[in-house]
Each structure stands twice: as C-alpha cells, then as structure tokens.
Design a protein around this nucleic acid. Structure first.
Lengths: 214, 214
DNA sequence: CTTTTTATAGATCATGCGATCAACAAAAGT
DNA sequence: ACTTTTGTTGATCGCATGATCTATAAAAAG
C-alpha cells in the first residue's frame, strides 16, 4: 500500500543506500511526486508521507522548500504552467476556419489537458483554499480564450440576441463540469467526451444562429 | 475577528457564565455553526476554533459527537437534507405546463438553494474528500431530476438527434458552474443568474427543436 | 429544601505535524 | 590521495490538534 519505491531509487532492503542527485533534478522529482500526492490526498497531506513516496527523508524536503506552503506554490506553478498554450488566441480568431471548427479544436485539446485527475483535483483544492494562482489562471483564461470567443461569436451572430461573457462561461462551464463530475465527485463520465463537447458547441452556435460552416 | 459570540449566549466579560441547553438544542446549535465554520475554513478546520465561535468548550463538542468525523457527518446531513424537495419529480413531469416553464421553475428554485456559499463549499470539499453522501446525492439527483427531464425532452424532441443523459448533465453543469465560479473560485458572477439560467434552458430546448410553449 | 441527574468546564494526554540542526557521506575540485 | 563542498540523513524540538477524564454547577426530581 505505501512502501512505494521509485524504480530509479535503488534502495535495497538492507539499509539506506542514499543517492545524491543534482539539486535541479531532485527538486523536479519532488515537485512531480508532490503534484500526484497532493492531488490524491488533498493539500493537507503531510510531508512525511510524501517523503516516504519519494524514498527520501522528510527533512530533505525542507532543504528544497523553506516551508510546506512554498512547496505547494511550486506544485501550483507546475500544474498551471503551460496549460494554456499561447497560440490559442490566434487560432481562435483565425477567420479562415469556421468558428465551429475552431471551438471544437480548442475544446478537444483543452479538455485533453484538463480532464486529468491531478490537474482537476489540485485546481479545485487550491480554488477552495483561495490560492491566488487560481484566480489568476481564470482571469487569464477569460482574457485570452473566452473574450476572443465572445468577439468571434459577436461577429457571426445572426439573431437579435447578442452574446455576452456569461454565454461563453456557460459553454465553458458545461464542458468543464464533465471533468468535475468524474474527477472530483468520482462519478462515471461520458464514454466519448468529444461527442459531448461537440454537442455543447453546436447548442451554443445554434442559439446564436451560426451554422457549422459559418 | 474571532471573539464572535452568539447574541443568545450571554457570556459576560467577567467569566464563564455557563448556560445549560437541552441536548437537542445544543446539538442543533453546534451543527449549524459547524456548517458555516467548515464551509469557510475547510473540513480540516479545528475543533477549538469552532468551539470558540460557539462560546463553548472544545471538550463539549465531544460530548455530542464521539469523533470529529461524526460531527462532519452531521454537517453533511444537515447540508444535503431537504435540498431536493420530493415534489420535483411530479412537477417536472406535469405536462399541462410547457417544459420550458417547468425547467425554469426548477432551476430558479434549485439555484436559489444551492448558489449559497456554505452549501457550495461543503459540497465541493466533501466531494474532494470522497464522502459517500456526496455521490449518493448526485445519484439521487440523477434519478429524481435529470432522468425525468430526459424523458420529458425525449417526448417533445423534434429533430433526429435524440437527447441523452449527457445532454441533461451538460445543461445542469453549465448552470451549476455559475455557483462554482462564484463561491469556490471567488470570481464575480452574473448580475442576474435567472437570465443566464433561462438562456441555458433555451439553448438546450432549441437544440432539440422544442419551442417555449412546446 | 434536599437529593439526584447531567450539561458543561478545565485540565491533560497522546500523537502527528511542520520545521530545525548537527553529523555524515557522496561527489567535485585540487 | 587529499581536501572541500554539499546533498542527505537521523534525531529532535515546539506546537497544534483530536480526544479523555474528573470536577463543577445548573437544572430536574423528590
């Protein structure tokens, strides 16, 4: 259950065969395992268990991070970083491609990135804890993704109902909720998320009178 | 900040004017405050702080609940109970009323109940912690609300795309996500949630070719 | 008024946790 | 080979927390 050893950590059962790693490497190793660990047990998981998983002393952790909070910050950064690739604003506003195709491309890729247990759980935990990075991430998402989507929808909307940011949040929320259901609540999810995502987008576009090929 | 006294708890500044309450009353008082407390600080909030809020000794808590977990169970029950009034299955399937009106009635009332900080945060915390009550609640919701909605939609759907449970979850998730955004992530929400809810429902119905008056 | 009951307080225990520090040993430098 | 550097350990501190237990006093019972 717990005596989990990293295969690379060749500690034999006899005693402590200590391995020295270059600081960068060890730090990365710690953060990587910490992501998985805190995602599983919550942010209040204790450092001793984490150290045990790493096959390392608890005190070693404090050689790389002054406090547990500092370690958690590193976890947040690791998790949040590069989750939104910087070319999406451009791709979402590339009007040579139908809006439906753009949205579909974004949300299939994005959902592939975030419908992941570690990410989902840490994002939710840190959100509950009021982490600043959390809000920053959502603001960023609003700026570089949702706002462009709003502009693109506005440019194509046919009826008299104009889209608002709330419509985009609604689209977004409906999709993200799939991940919440499965990874936070532990409920069974859809067999094929892509289909569900495509339908979400179609519902959204239909409401504003936008056809699949614009 | 903390020296919060219940108005009914007339402890003067001089010393301990202890008040004896009938067990049922005190128990209820503890659970009520515990809901607010754990919603704020998370499920790992400590019993001493909670006791302080109640103007009561920490040891008293353990006179009413053998363990902290038992107290948390009581908190879950208190929070989850009567959140879904039992007449909704009937009202949702009452075909003398247009489906749009039924959905609107349900979600305006339901959102009024769940778009509340305490509920939202405890539901999310307990979900993350893997509480059984959480999954039970969602199964229940699926059975008594979402499944009927699916049946009603099926009966009225016009096009060739048939609705599935995932469509209902998508509608539901998009609406619930409003509460998550505001109360878990601490982001600003819509000025008027009812409008957003109405639009969600309209999107949903439009997709299946169902008019506002059926 | 007296006795009995019991809700509550106060002190304390046991443990788990974050954090510290001196000693050790594996590399790196010479 | 010897010295220096530094990644790592092991022991330990201080504190917070859940839980226990006995004494107390407010009601209830007689």
């Amino acid at each position: 259950m717990d005596g989990r050893l990293d295969s690379e950590n060749a500690e034999s059962e006899t005693g402590t065969a200590r391995r020295r790693l270059p600081p960068k490497e060890r730090r990365a190793q710690i953060v990587n395992e910490a992501v998985r660990f805190f995602a599983e047990v919550g942010l209040e998981g204790n450092t001793r268990q984490l150290a045990k998983r790493l096959g390392v002393t608890q005190s070693l952790l404090f050689n790389y991070f002054a406090t547990k909070d500092e370690l958690l910050e590193a976890v947040y950064e690791k998790v949040y970083l590069d989750r939104l690739s910087p070319d999406w604003p451009d791709r979402l506003t590339d009007r040579t491609v139908p809006l439906r195709a753009r949205l579909l491309a974004f949300y299939t890729e994005y959902s592939g990135l975030i419908f992941e247990r570690d990410w989902m759980r840490i994002f939710m935990s840190s959100g509950l804890a009021g982490a600043v990075l959390n809000r920053r991430y959502l603001m960023h998402l609003g700026d570089v993704i949702l706002r462009p989507v709003l502009a693109e929808t506005e440019a194509l909307a046919q009826g008299d109902t104009r889209p608002t940011m709330e419509d985009i949040w609604n689209l977004h929320g409906g999709i993200v909720y799939i991940g919440i259901r499965t990874h936070i609540y532990g409920m069974p999810g859809p067999d094929d998320p892509e289909t569900v995502i495509a339908q979400s987008i179609d519902k959204y576009l239909l409401y504003f009178g936008i056809g699949p090929e614009d």
